[in-house]
Design a protein around this nucleic acid. Structure first.
Lengths: 339, 339
DNA sequence: CTGAAAGCGCTAACAT
DNA sequence: ATGTTAGCGCTTTCAG
């Protein structure tokens, strides 16, 4: 392994000068810098990240806690975050919190956590309180929902607003009996994204004069399979409905599949809408109406918050909130053919 | 920050004993261990990863180079790898190589690379030679295709075999004129997964006595959009075809969408198959026939190889190859209705 | 503008 | 079974 010492010797300067060159600090003569750069090239030197981290007391790594990379929404998000973090000189380690969130977060807390400079938590069904677990231990930003713990930075997705857009759109397209999968409207349930979307959906619908039968709101795993099973469950109740809101596009695709298997046509017999506007939603048959969150804006805001907090620019009682916007993306799954 | 020193003082032992306890080394009396563990708990101590890395000369991090997390196949793969690596005590940093592979790999090479203990390269269209770039710099395993550089460990996906299964299946279902998107059959083109799949497809078809018009093999970006555009291109040639093989399921979904927009029914008018068996393939309408690679087996093999090489268990002329298997997963998109 | 020295927190090697 | 010492490669501080 070639060290800074070696480079310094090779270039005939001190290690400090090499360090200055590498870190682009001023007060280095051009000629000297060139000699150092040549030496670095000749020897194939690269800085030792561990030594730098140890000395500086920071690792240049941020953790990203998500439940599941293998879901289009989180994949999209992870990709944006990795790219955006790189701009600020940070690497990203993805922490898979999975189904057994509590246990995994606990494990994380006692081990790897300390080697991150900051943590970004994005979990569709994370209760706001979870974020508090980390408070004080390291800079944290919660991404995707309002946290009920006030003393944490967060970036809020327009869950209720977006769901409201869907409710109004479904009604406008002629739906009269609404159902939803992936969220329930119950104050007793902790407020994850599903709950917030359910609340926004129900409230907007009722504001339009359409009552939503609470039995027609069902929770489920956020997977294709979950969507398929839930729609079977709804059909099994015997309660008729003609407009279905799914808390995510993945659920919507599973639901459309389930309806198809029962011979129910979308949008002919049933309007279906999702949330997230994942890439595949545009290409399925029928394509899926969805709510497009401002992913890029959210990621930008979250990283700016995290970086400023890591830099210690804000004190322990200056917590920020960024409220994002959403846009309705109408596609085939809710375009009722004129009848 | 609380250090090992602090713990040692608090427990009334030396730092070495604390280190021994943390690393589960033998020769520590139970009573002593308990005292140390209590102290760790009391003080909320966690080891400093940077210091440990510096001392040990290894980081406990492996890099995973993939072109794009936000694609179902890579998402699936990344998730498996992260989980499997954790079992061996490694963290995974995802390196997005993106479209501009050469440049990114170059950048990677000169900076972050050194802080990884090993590198896993998985790129559908990586030429085997790229892997050689890293040879000697750090342990590397190429995942997903045969590398033409012999002196590198690799895990080979059953590209040609899987594509052959599709060819035989399409013919058996009655297809007589075949086309393919996402790969060309041309010895001059570097052998990425697309090329290997194309070769396997063409050879199996011709072995069955079905010639494949070379103009009906088109390359394209591995995206939904790419699939849609390519199928439009194929239809534009005016050459009739009734069986379409897509190099990935993402392409197949885009292609089915493109066919749908032209009023061509799948599987009624055209049989379509993909590759990768991504989760969504089972839920689209129609569901997509695909080749299911043994993801878990490949990931296991790749990590075992990488870990053993990091441990220095194999010399510079002992390179391994793991050949994976594939399974045909027949779904609606190729079930020709009896006519 | 450049150099010398100290030390970040940990563990390998060697005492005891 | 436990303690002592040295040093990993870098950057911060202070001197020139």
């Amino acid at each position: 392994m070639v060290t800074m010492q070696d480079v310094a010797r090779h270039a005939g300067v001190s290690v400090m000068t090499v360090s200055n060159v590498i870190n682009a600090r001023p007060h280095v003569r051009d000629a000297t810098r060139d000699r150092v750069l040549t030496a670095i090239d000749d020897l194939g030197y690269a800085v030792n990240a561990a030594a730098r981290s140890l000395r500086q007391g920071r690792s240049g790594v941020i953790g990203l806690a998500i439940p599941d990379i293998d879901r289009p929404y989180f994949g999209q998000l992870a990709e944006l975050i990795v790219a955006r973090a790189a701009q600020d000189g940070y690497e990203v380690v993805i922490e898979h919190t999975g189904a057994d969130r509590e246990r995994e977060i606990g494990a994380l807390r006692h081990s790897r956590l300390r080697s991150y400079d900051g943590l970004l938590i994005s979990a569709v069904n994370l209760s706001g309180a979870d974020a508090a677990l980390f408070r004080g231990e390291l800079p944290v930003v919660v991404l995707g929902e309002r946290s009920y713990e006030e003393r944490v930075d967060h970036v809020v997705m327009a869950n209720a607003d977006g769901a409201g857009m869907i409710a109004r759109h479904l009604i406008e397209q002629g739906a009269r009996s609404l159902a939803m999968i992936g969220g329930v409207h119950d104050p007793a349930v902790p407020a994850g994204a599903g709950t917030l979307r359910a609340a926004g959906f129900v409230e907007a619908a009722e504001a339009e004069g359409v009552q939503v039968d609470r039995r027609m709101l069902v929770d489920c795993a956020y997977s294709f399979e979950g969507g398929l099973r839930s729609v079977e469950h709804l059909l099994g109740t015997g309660v008729p409905f003609d407009g279905l809101f799914c808390a995510t596009d993945v659920l919507a695709i599973g639901a459309i599949r389930g309806l198809h298997e029962r011979g129910i046509s979308v949008p002919g017999d049933m309007l279906v809408a999702g949330f997230d506007d994942v890439p595949v939603a545009r290409f399925t048959v029928p394509s899926v109406t969805s709510v497009a969150p401002d992913h890029a804006g959210m990621v930008d805001a979250a990283l700016a918050m995290l970086v400023s907090r890591i830099a210690g620019e804000r004190g322990a009682d200056d917590y920020r909130e960024h409220v994002s916007t959403a846009r309705l993306q109408v596609r085939e799954s809710t375009r009722r053919p004129r009848s």
